[in-house]
Each structure stands twice: as structure tokens, then as C-alpha cells.
């Protein structure tokens, strides 16, 4: 049997699957449940400085081979959020996702996290900062944050304050993504998550002659975005040395293998928790193990970047 154990950013993981941010993950209890159902690590719902109710419902709508979502960063704010996620006891690592309107806000978030870490209340393996939400005014793509300049500034500001690894998350398919990835590396971040949803896209209900999403448009997730994210992982892998989390449409073990061959070290899963239930983490892990065994790879890490060698 091939070994599926993974090491990522110095963190030991029982397998390379990670819960993607914003998919479940609003409460500690739920993150624990996702670990029990197979995830190797979990990322929380993104936390912002202020409390956000998020966009009006519908916040999700199905499209061909995927979903549009416009949650709009609903979250209880950094203070309640850090309270919620304190006292993590499981061996799977907790990664806290944060997002902000500007570098100053990012600094405040980092101070709050650093303070909690120092008090010993918060036990988390890494922080993920998101530059790339496509459907929330003042944040991410709608604020034009996915540029080399901003990415580098945010990375530097966070690294100056955080004593734990930093992951930065981008949306694939945006012009200049390789330059952004290089800037993230220059800024001192330890990994890149590729990626966030893409778009925004729109769904119109023809019976009602109306946009379905409460916000009108939303980010595309699921299998529909997979080829774009895989291409982006492939390009970024060639250009940076820091490891990559591959994310977007991963539904089966073979999708995960494909991302890893493009250059991802670990993979994050979101929408597939709809297609295959929350047990999707253990299902994908088993499928990966089976595939690796059948193809005589002793370790899962042996396939990382394999597509670059041919």
C-alpha cells in the first residue's frame, strides 16, 4: 500500500486533503467533524475585522458542473471567530483564514492572532490570507487586491507579525497570476493556495426573468473551474519554490492526483462536500491510495510536479 502521509509547511498530515475555506467551517465543532470524516487539515471560514452577515440569500446556485456562490464573507468577526476556534485539540492542523480591506486591516488581524497565540489559547498550524474573493465589495478581486504590489505588501505585513506559516490564496485565471505568485514568495509567504472561485458569474432564472443569487453574481466553484486552476497551478509551480495547495473542483481521487502532478503539494476540497457528502475526504483519500498503489508510487509526494518531467 502506498503511503498517503504528507508533510506540508513542517506540519504532519495523515493525508493531503484539506477542507477549503468557507465550505462548512463556521464552528469548531464542525471542523472537528470534518477531521473525523477524513480531512488531513481544515481551513476555517474567512474572518474579517468586522461582523458580516453576508449577502442576501440565495447565496448558492447550481450551474453546469459547478456552483456559483455569493456568501459575501458572512462571519462573526475576528474576535468572536478566534474565540470560536480556540482550544483546538485534534491532531489534524487548524488553519485560520483571514481577509481584509487593506494592509492596515491585515496588520490588525495579525496582531489579534499573534496575541492569542502568545496567550496559548489558539493552536493553529498556519494562517491563510485571501486576496481573491470575486463577489464581495471592498475585498479581494472586487477591490483589485490580486496584484503583485498588494500581494507582496500584505505578505510582508503579515509575516512581520505572525510566528506561524502564512499561506496566500489567489483566484486562478486572472491575468498576471504568475507575477502575483512571485510577489507572494518575495513577500515571505510560505505557500500559495490556487485557488479561490473564479469569475464572477451569473445565473438567470428564465421563468422568473431574474438573477438567482441575492448579490446577482458569484464565484464559480466545482468541476467547471478545475482545468483553469490546474493550468494555473502548473504555471505557478514553474515560477516559485514555495509549495502550492491545489483547489477547485476536486471531486475524486484522480482529480487530486492531477493537481499534484501539475505541482500541488496538498489539495483543498470544498464543493465536493455537496456532490459526495462530508465523507468526501476519506473517499478521496482512499481513491488516491488505490491509484498510487496500482501505479507503484510508494509515497504520495512522488507525484508532485510529475507532469513537468515529461
Amino acid at each position: 500500500m502506498s503511503s498517503i502521509e504528507t508533510e506540508f509547511l513542517g506540519l504532519k498530515m495523515k493525508n493531503p486533503t484539506i477542507l477549503a475555506s468557507g465550505v462548512q467551517g463556521v464552528t469548531k465543532g464542525n471542523l472537528e467533524e470534518v477531521c473525523k470524516r477524513g480531512a488531513g487539515a481544515v481551513i476555517t471560514k474567512s474572518l474579517t475585522l468586522e461582523v458580516r452577515k453576508g449577502h442576501e440569500t440565495p447565496i448558492m446556485v447550481q450551474t453546469d458542473s459547478g456552483f456559483l456562490n455569493a456568501v459575501g464573507y458572512a462571519n462573526p468577526g475576528i474576535d468572536s471567530g478566534l474565540e470560536e476556534f480556540s482550544g483546538w485539540k485534534r491532531k489534524e492542523h487548524l488553519i485560520i483564514s483571514i481577509t481584509a480591506k487593506n494592509v492596515d486591516e491585515y496588520s490588525i488581524l495579525a496582531d489579534k492572532i499573534a496575541a492569542k497565540l502568545k496567550e496559548g489559547k489558539l493552536k493553529c498550524g498556519a494562517i491563510e490570507a485571501v486576496l481573491s474573493c470575486p463577489h464581495t465589495p471592498e475585498y479581494g478581486l472586487m477591490a483589485g487586491q490580486q496584484t503583485p504590489e498588494i500581494a507582496e505588501k500584505v505578505a510582508r505585513a503579515l509575516k512581520a507579525k505572525l510566528p506561524i506559516p502564512l499561506i496566500m490564496k489567489i483566484s486562478p485565471g486572472i491575468p498576471g497570476e504568475v507575477e502575483v505568485a512571485k510577489a507572494i514568495e518575495r513577500g515571505g509567504a510560505n505557500a500559495i493556495d490556487i485557488g479561490n472561485t473564479i469569475g464572477p458569474g451569473m445565473k438567470i432564472d428564465i421563468e422568473r426573468k431574474a438573477k438567482v443569487l441575492g448579490f446577482g453574481m458569484g464565484g464559480l466553484s466545482g468541476p467547471a473551474m478545475k482545468p483553469i486552476a490546474i493550468r494555473c497551478v502548473y504555471d505557478v509551480y514553474k515560477s516559485v519554490k514555495i509549495p502550492i495547495i491545489g483547489c477547485g473542483g476536486i471531486t475524486y481521487g484522480t482529480d487530486a492526483i492531477e493537481y499534484m502532478m501539475a505541482g500541488a503539494s496538498t489539495i483543498a476540497i470544498g464543493t465536493a462536500a455537496y456532490y459526495r457528502g462530508t465523507d468526501v475526504f476519506s473517499k478521496i483519500t482512499k481513491e488516491m491510495e488505490k491509484w498510487l498503489t496500482e501505479h507503484n508510487y510508494p509515497y504520495v509526494k512522488d507525484i508532485i510536479g510529475a507532469a513537468h518531467k515529461n
Binding site: G22, V23, Q24, G25, V26, T27, G29, N30, E32, E33, K36, K45, G54, T57, I59, M60, F67, N69, V71, A74, G270, T271, A273, Y274, G277, T278
Partner: peptide
Amino acid sequence: MKCGINICGACAVDGKL
């Protein structure tokens, strides 16, 4: 409840949705 389909996590009660 928001999404109704096991994704957005809004309706968590302990570990369950």
C-alpha cells in the same frame, strides 16, 4: 439556513449541519 445543501456551514449545531 442558507445553502441547504451541506456547504455553507451557517446552520451548524455542534459538528452537524
